[in-house]
C-alpha cells in the first residue's frame, strides 16, 4: 500500500467525518426548524462523503479494516482532520462561520480533485462537489446575512471570525505527505488554493461587514495528527461510544 495515498485519504475522510459529526450535534436544537433540517442534511452529506473516502482508504490500506473501523475504532492521535473542523459549535453564528471557512476551502479542493490522476478519487470528488457547492452557497449567504444583520449578530459573527480565523491557515500548509500525492497528480498542492480562497473570503467578509484579525498566525497539528486540540477527544467519546461499549453492534 502507498502510505502517502492512505494518509491523503484519511485527511479527506476525517475532515468530512468530524465536521459531519459536529454539524449533526445541532439536530433537534437549531434555532428554527428550517435551519435544523438544513444542518442535518449537510451533516448527512458529509457523512456520506466520509463513507466513500474512508472505504477507499481502508481498501488502499489492505489490512481488512472497513470504513466503519476507521471511523469508530481509531483514537484521537490517528485522526488526520484539520483543527478547524473539530472546534466546538459555539453559538449558531460560530457554527456557520466555521462552516463557511471550511466550505470555501472544501469546494476549491474538490474542484481540483475532480481532475485527480486517481480515477476513484476523481469520481468521489465529482459527486461531492455538487453537495459542497450548495453548502457554500448556504453558509456564505448566512454569514453575510448575520454579519450584515443587527449589531448583536454582527458582533457575534466578528467574535466567531476572530476565534476561528487562526485555524484557517492549516488548510493551506503543504507537508511531505501532500507533496508525494501532489507529485503523483493525485491532489492539488494545498498552498496553491490559498489565493482563490482569500479572494472569495474577502468578498464575503466585505458584504458581511466583517474583518479577519491581523496577522498570519495559524494553529497546526490536526492534519498531521501531531497535536489535535482537546476538543477532538471529547467529540470521539460521544461519536464512538456505542461501538466501544458494544463492539460490533449493528441495527
Amino acid at each position: 500500500m502507498s502510505h502517502a495515498l492512505f494518509e491523503t485519504l484519511l485527511r479527506l475522510g476525517d475532515n468530512t467525518l468530524i465536521l459531519g459529526h459536529r454539524v449533526g450535534e445541532w439536530c433537534g436544537i437549531a434555532p428554527v426548524l428550517e435551519e435544523d433540517i438544513a444542518l442535518a442534511n449537510m451533516a448527512l452529506d458529509l457523512i456520506g462523503q466520509t463513507q466513500m473516502w474512508l472505504a477507499l482508504a481502508a481498501e488502499i490500506e489492505g489490512k481488512g479494516r472497513s470504513a466503519d473501523d476507521l471511523a469508530m475504532l481509531r483514537d484521537a492521535w490517528d485522526f488526520r482532520n484539520v483543527l478547524l473542523v473539530e472546534q466546538p459549535n459555539g453559538d449558531f453564528g460560530q457554527t456557520l462561520m466555521r462552516q463557511f471557512l471550511f466550505d470555501q476551502f472544501h469546494l476549491l479542493q474538490l474542484q481540483a480533485l475532480t481532475d485527480s490522476s486517481d480515477q476513484r478519487i476523481a469520481a468521489i470528488a465529482a459527486k461531492a462537489v455538487k453537495e459542497v457547492t450548495y453548502h457554500l452557497e448556504r453558509s456564505s449567504d448566512t454569514v453575510i446575512a448575520l454579519g450584515d444583520g443587527t449589531s448583536e449578530s454582527n458582533s457575534r459573527m466578528q467574535t466567531a471570525l476572530n476565534k476561528l480565523w487562526p485555524y484557517a491557515g492549516e488548510m493551506f500548509v503543504t507537508d511531505p505527505i501532500d507533496l508525494e500525492s501532489v507529485e503523483a497528480g493525485i491532489i492539488p498542492d494545498p498552498s496553491t488554493l490559498r489565493d482563490a480562497y482569500m479572494d472569495a473570503a474577502e468578498k464575503v467578509f466585505k458584504l458581511a461587514h466583517l474583518a479577519p484579525p491581523e496577522g498570519n498566525f495559524a494553529h497546526s497539528g490536526g492534519k498531521t495528527g501531531f497535536r489535535h486540540s482537546e476538543h477532538l477527544g471529547h467529540l470521539l467519546t460521544q461519536m464512538q461510544w456505542m461501538q466501544r461499549a458494544y463492539p460490533g453492534a449493528q441495527w
Binding site: 428554527v32 426548524l33 428550517e34 433540517i37 438544513a38 442534511n41 450548495y134 452557497e137 448556504r138 449567504d141 446575512a145
Partner: peptide, 20 residues
C-alpha cells in the same frame, strides 16, 4: 409552508425541507 427571511432563503429552505 415554511418560514424564511426573504425569497432567496425561502427557496433554499424549501430545497432542504421539501426535496430531500
Amino acid at each position: 409552508s415554511l418560514h424564511a427571511v426573504d425569497a432567496e432563503s425561502a427557496m433554499k429552505n424549501a430545497r432542504d425541507v421539501y426535496t430531500r
